[in-house]
Amino acid sequence: MGKQIYKMTVNGQVKEVMAEPRELLIYVLREKLDLTGPHVGCETSHCGACTVEMNGMSVKSCTVFAAQADGAEITTIEGLGDPDGLHVLQEAFKEHHGLQCGYCTPGMITRAHRLLQENPNPTEVEVRMGIAGNLCRCTGYQNIVKSILAAAAQINAAKEAAE
């Protein structure tokens, strides 16, 4: 299969990559753009370790072809915060022990980020439903849910204060 050039905006930067159409987005991100935050856990869309945002939606990048991502706007965990300014969700996961081995964490936080765009004030049940596509083997989810609810409260409080 011939290689083609695909152009995508990744974490705010325009990137051009040479890839076969069949190459998966997770492969392009990890191997060609050195964004190793998203992980591979199952390759069948079940575990969500590879979750990124594509055009304002959470997608499992292990089952999106590079060709499908041509022209897309993509955000990975690396685009959410940096050492000088962590995202509220990153801080909340640290504060509430929302992670252990860390393997699901980039996908989980990226998913939570989108969830809070979709529903800025979710209930516990809505958070649990909202992250049902992201598996974690370590935490039992209780502290992940707590982290996301705490982040939502903090974001909402900051919004209110600004208004």
Partner: peptide, 19 residues
Amino acid sequence: RKRVEDARFTQGKGNYVDD
């Protein structure tokens, strides 16, 4: 005590074997 591991994991900067 809050975990010292979490800074790198929450930023996608862990270093797993496939990385």
